[in-house]
Write a protein that binds this DNA or RNA. Structure first.
Length: 674
RNA sequence: GGACCAGUAGUUCAGUGGAUAGAAUGGCUGCCUGCGGAGCAGUUGGUCGUCGGUUCGAAUCCGAUCUGGUCCGCCA
């Protein structure tokens, strides 16, 4: 907890301790459990202990010396705490005058000297974004907005992983459909996701059959190369059971068989038309899908075959364009896009490997090459610097066939990434699964003599999102997309809006903004470190701690001022003469609201310093919720006295300003009516 | 086997050394001639995974331990 007024009282107490006891110690404050014990309290135990005195003695001394600022009403000692009762009216005046004065309340320049790169989303271009990826998008977006709000220059980048083996089967299927002039049956990235899942299944079926053949597990069958029917699976399983294969391998193959059977049946059921269309196309045109896949991958990695290059790029671009459309729904935008393939083609990876080799930090083991993470961490002072006490595992970066794996490109990418924006710091908002890979990148930079770069890169990690009861799997076309959540909410909202008298245009704007905020806020409000089982029902809810709830509070607050205008109350004059106004805080609800307003600036600072974008959402909820309570109990326009009316109007106005700042940071739209 | 993260009300979560652990949701009950009911109020519900330690004080820090997720040699 932090607050400017409270901190200033704290500083006074610190001064007294320094002056009186020559004591330089940290003083903490907190909120008493009950208002009867005051508004703010200071525990005196540790000071008493250092001074070999009692809390009461210390407290008495502080009270004696504390020249009471005008917003302190009463001081009290109780159970070792110094309890302070604030003079609410002066507190209100100080806080609200400040709020009125600032154009964007809570904005500051504490990060003005920073230039921040934020990489987020960076999803593979083989399907639509799902709620798992979008968790990173939302966190990255809000982190960037927090920095911007505090004066930093922010550059948001998307790293396109277009070199994956997985893309090749997608390209093959996509091209076959193009030749047949088949049109997408859905949003482009979703369509790509379908093609990928289907053709990849064919590929896996072929690979599995090949493996079984190698082990001499053969069955009599009528089925085609890319087909796996249930009867064959049964036969395979019984052959496998009786074969002399190692148990471990038996288990793996059994699992694989079962999985592929499940996936192919499920895909056939859910996408019957596309499945059979692609099946026939691949069966008729592709003799050896596996071989072709490898050929494509190698050719793209080399980057010289123009046809292949343009195919990969085209499909990737299509997928990413779908991602961008989705992200834009939620006010999430990227400034730049980097291609993994560009990094590969630059030839830098070869140099890096050579240098790592020369520096003796590559470990050859069997046939693969690993980056000697622990050795680097120890020798270059990394462990000491970051207080790492365990052994860091080595990571394979070149496989036994001499093919460089993605961490190599990641290292090359990060060598120049900060230069692209002349950045002071870079956050990679990437799921926790990438922890070791991300650490490896930084260690490689250490080994290459680029500690200065490595120390300015941070992995902002977040836990995975699963579905209630099952896992999300792109390969199986199993996921919940933010698009479908958005649509589900929108249907609900449209229904609500039908009962109100809005024009079609207004209605569309409102439902768009409400739906977007609903989905975005739901993802934002969860602690990044917590794995979440996603509940679709809750995600589309419009009540309680949701985006629409906040928007509703805003509209309600705004409406009071609108109403005031109708009643010919000149609020501008009230604002202009606020300096001379006698502020009056009468009820608990006003006081609660006021304190949250006062707290907002420090909440913003803390959110970025502790890397908790989600804390903004939770604070917004308490503010909105407190406002509703205030609204219910305190009549603004019909307040008993002019002073009370003016104070309440300014409270409403300040709440609006708070919400505007919070919405700005969360990238959620405000609504005047809904 | 090692590492990282999580474990708080029936459920979903907030709470990163302070007094009596907070919301929401489910169930039950009230408030629309009122500044917008997408709201508010009441009621019910917790050995903060377990055991120790540090401390005047622990959900919070340390150590063990259990459970779940993820990563640790050829996918990204």
């Amino acid at each position: 907890m932090s607050s400017r007024i409270y901190d200033s009282i704290k500083d006074k107490i610190k001064e007294i301790l320094k002056e009186h006891y020559n004591l330089d110690t940290e003083v903490v404050w907190n909120k008493p459990p009950s208002p009867k014990m005051g508004d703010i309290s200071f525990p005196l135990f540790n000071i008493a202990k250092i001074q070999k005195s009692t809390p009461d003695e210390i407290g008495k001394r502080i009270i004696e010396k504390l020249s009471v600022p005008k917003y302190i009403n009463k001081l009290e000692l109780k159970d070792g705490f110094l309890n302070i009762f604030l003079e609410k009216n002066s507190f209100a005046k100080k806080t609200l005058l400040e709020t009125i004065k600032q154009p964007n309340y809570g904005q500051n320049t504490s990060k003005a000297s920073e230039r921040i790169i934020i990489e987020h989303t960076s999803s593979n271009p083989v399907g639509p974004l799902h709620i798992g990826n979008v968790r990173g998008s939302v966190l990255g977006d809000v982190l960037g907005r927090l920095y911007k709000f505090q004066g930093a220059a922010v550059n948001v980048r998307y790293y396109i992983n277009d070199l994956g083996r997985q893309i090749a089967p997608l390209i093959i299927g996509y091209n076959l459909l193009m030749e047949e002039k088949v049109k997408p049956d859905s949003k482009i990235d979703l369509w790509i996701g379908k093609i990928y899942a289907i053709v990849n299944t064919f590929l896996e079926i072929q690979q599995l059959k090949y493996q079984l053949k190698v082990l001499n597990i053969k069955i009599k069958t009528e089925s085609k190369l890319y087909e796996l029917n249930p009867e064959d699976v049964k036969k395979y399983l019984s052959h496998l059971e009786n074969s002399k294969t190692e148990q471990q391998e038996k288990d793996n193959l059994t699992k694989w068989l079962q999985k592929l059977e499940r996936v192919s049946t499920s895909l056939q059921k859910r996408l019957p038309k596309l499945y059979s269309l692609l099946f026939n196309l691949v069966e008729d045109n592709i003799e050896d899908l596996n071989k072709l896949t490898i050929e494509y991958v190698i050719k793209y990695q080399e980057g010289k075959d123009e046809e292949i290059v343009s195919s990969f790029r085209e499909v990737s671009r299509e997928a990413i364009s779908g991602h961008v459309t989705t992200l834009n729904l939620f006010n999430i935008f990227h400034d730049d896009f980097d291609w993994e393939s560009d990094v590969a083609w630059s030839g830098e990876v070869t140099h890096i490997l050579k240098e790592l080799e020369q520096n003796s930090v590559l470990r050859h083991d069997g046939h693969a090459r690993l980056l000697a993470n622990d050795k680097i961490a120890t020798n270059f002072g990394f462990k000491e610097k970051y207080n790492i006490k365990y052994e860091i595992p080595d990571l394979i970066i070149v496989n036994s066939e001499g093919i460089t794996l993605y961490p190599c490109r990641d290292i090359a990418y990060h060598l120049h990434k900060l230069d692209k924006f002349d950045a002071t710091f870079c956050y990679n908002v990437i799921s926790k699964q990438q922890q070791l890979a991300q650490l490896t990148v930084r260690l490689a930079l250490y080994a290459l003599g680029n500690q200065d770069i490595a120390d300015r890169i941070s992995h902002f990690d977040y836990e995975y999102v699963s579905l209630v009861g099952r896992k999300m799997a792109g390969r199986e076309f199993e996921y919940v997309t933010p698009d479908e959540l958005y649509d589900a909410v929108k249907t609900e909202v449209d229904l609500l809006l039908k009962e109100r008298n809005y024009t079609e245009e207004e209605s569309q704007e409102i439902s768009r903004k409400v739906s977007a905020s609903s989905v975005k806020y739901y993802i934002l409000k969860m602690d990044p470190q917590k794995a979440v089982a996603f509940d679709v029902k809750k995600a589309v809810s419009l009540n309680e701690n949701t985006g629409p709830f906040l928007q509703y509070s805003y509209a309600r607050a705004l409406n009071i001022l609108k109403k005031a205008k109708e009643e010919k109350i000149d609020f501008q004059t009230i604002l202009d003469s606020a300096q001379d106004l006698k502020f009056e805080i009468e009820k608990k609800e006003e006081w609660d609201l006021l304190q949250l307003i006062e707290e907002l600036p420090s909440i913003i600072v803390k959110a970025v310093d502790s890397l908790r974008p989600d804390s903004i959402a939770n604070f917004s909820y308490s503010l909105a919720s407190t406002f509703h309570k205030f609204y219910d109990v305190c009549s603004v326009l019909k307040a008993e006295t002019e002073e009370l009316k003016a104070t309440r109007m300014i409270l409403v106005y300040s709440t609006i300003k708070c919400l505007e700042s919070l919405f700005e940071i969360m990238g959620i739209d405000t609504l005047e009516r809904m």
